[in-house]
């Protein structure tokens, strides 16, 4: 499982969706901004993937999602230095520092469970591994026993992928980026904006993380996403979407070559042409043949 798969699996425990037990929501946890970065008093930065808090249980969970098997001891050390005061005053969390207990959670694939248990043996932190249908807890105990029990008992319906709350990350394949970004291009085209900015697209595709990644310092991650989308737009503007889109020379922006037709029939035809080209593009990028769309249909 990739980092993105596991991150969306954690978020699936907050958002009610078929096949997934919303144990975080049922336990009254608030999931705070994904990817939030904050500074410790010594200037060190801490950026857990997810922070969840329960005011009723006086617990804050710093959840680090691990797509691979590597364990970053420096990062773990920084997480272990986080105090409730830091969470209250530096991460702006609505907690009572005098009562709040902090739990560090490493979420990984089942295949890496033993390795993470070993890596955290002399450290703080609970290991929670996922195999697609169940979770296994190891390492130190969670400060919230009821949540630990619910997490250990939680089962996911086989073959039920989590929703793509975060649709892609730096590591995602180009076809996945295409499936997410091109609908945003179409929406911008329909609005008649004419010009496309990468930030505008990411604000739409990653709206849950955009506001915190921008100002608080996860610049590397945000820049990585921007780079991927920039490369993607450059490629498609020269390729399959060239009839519609072009790069503005010497500018980090693109423009549509023409507005969407005002006449509805012509507009529908144009949108279907765009759909057809997108299918060709996704197939070229390795996204498979896709679903057969009825692009020449009887209802037109």
């Amino acid at each position: 499982m990739t980092h993105l798969d596991l991150l969306n699996a954690v978020l699936a425990l907050r958002f009610r969706q078929p096949g997934w037990p919303p144990i975080l929501a049922e336990a009254g946890y608030l999931v705070h901004n994904v990817g939030v970065t904050f500074k410790l008093p010594d200037g060190a930065k801490v950026a857990p993937d997810v922070i969840a808090t329960s005011q009723a249980r006086n617990v804050a969970l710093l959840i680090e999602v691990k797509g691979g098997g590597g364990f970053d001891h420096d990062q773990a050390g920084r997480m272990e230095r986080v105090t409730a005061e830091d969470l209250r005053h530096s991460a702006y969390l609505p907690i009572d520092p005098s009562a709040c207990r902090i739990g560090i959670v490493y979420v990984c694939s089942r295949e890496h469970h033993a390795a993470f248990e070993q890596a955290t043996a002399a450290r703080a932190g609970t290991v929670i591994s996922f195999d697609g249908t169940s979770f296994q807890l190891g390492g130190n105990a969670l400060p919230d026993e009821m949540l630990a029990a619910a997490w250990a008992a939680a089962t996911v319906t086989p073959g039920a992928p989590p929703l793509a709350i975060i649709p892609f990350d730096q590591e995602s394949d180009a076809a996945t980026i295409a499936r997410t970004v091109i609908p945003e291009l179409v929406a911008i085209l329909l609005r008649g904006a004419g010009v496309v900015f990468v930030d505008e697209i990411l604000q739409r595709t990653h709206h849950l993380v955009h506001s915190v990644m921008q100002p608080t310092g996860s610049k590397a991650e945000w820049q990585g996403l921007k780079k991927r989308v920039t490369e993607f737009l450059n490629e498609v503007a020269r390729g399959e979407l060239n009839p519609w889109l072009e790069r503005i020379p010497q500018q980090p922006m693109w423009r549509f070559k023409s507005a969407v037709p005002a006449d509805q029939t012509t507009r529908t035809r144009e949108l279907k042409n765009l759909q057809r080209s997108t299918q060709v593009l996704i197939e070229r990028l390795g996204g498979g043949a896709g679903i057969q769309l009825e692009l020449f249909d009887r209802l037109e």
Binding site: I182, T268, K272, Q275, G288, L293, E294, D297, L299
Partner: peptide, 22 residues
């Protein structure tokens, strides 16, 4: 699914769907 996202009436949804599991 192919019909739903074909940009036509009655749905008027534009998309490129994929099969992600069975």
């Amino acid at each position: 699914v192919g019909r739903m996202f074909s940009a036509t009436e009655p749905f008027r949804l534009w998309g490129v769907p994929e099969r992600i599991a069975g």
